[in-house]
Amino acid sequence: MIRTLGLVSGICGLIIVGSYQGTYDAVAANKRIAMERAVFKVVPAARSIEEYYALEGGSIAKAGASAPAGAVKFFAGYDESGKLVGVAAEGGAKGYADTVRIMFGYDPACQCVKNIGVVSMRETPGIGDKILVDRDFLANFKELDAGLNAEMSALAHEIKTVKHGSKTDAWQVDAISGATITSRAVGKAINDTAQALLPKLVPNIDKIGSKS
């Protein structure tokens, strides 16, 4: 019995290690491509991207293998000449069915959120997933105000989703009629990540101003 079990484990171990080794490069490449595609979507001007962590103390470090505690990951997009054109970050909030994870692009020049992309969601088809296509909703993210307050400790105005048709300020997100919960999740996801990231990032934005 011991011999058989040993044999089985041996064979299985070999198969698993073999397939892991065999597919490792392809998997890594795939993940990178998927990530880059998402970043390029929200920072369309970018030609190349770098991955960074915004650290607790206010400094920025290049992303390594392991994330330090309290760090917020973001991607910096550069154009052909190596100039910073935008920052992309990921955020998530509870939607109608499950967490809605989105990627949004931040433009340091206008201090605003430009473009969003959905990383993953399980919202109701035809209702919640309108956040992908609804033109009025996506128009919110042409220039969504995300400026910091004077002390640079938080956003000057919380990014908030408001009821359909009642948007009055540049930092508000106009919800989709009938899909308020999903819309609210998008607003909250952006707000949470922006609140965590931007106070650390903006004071140091010059450090990553050009491609290193």
Binding site: C12, I15, T23, A26, N30
Partner: peptide, 21 residues
């Protein structure tokens, strides 16, 4: 179960390598 789990793991890696979508 061990045998089946092994091949499932292998398939899991293979699909990740083929397409993440």
């Amino acid at each position: 179960i061990v045998i089946i789990a092994t091949f499932v793991t292998a398939v899991d890696y293979a699909i990740q390598a083929i397409s993440l979508t």
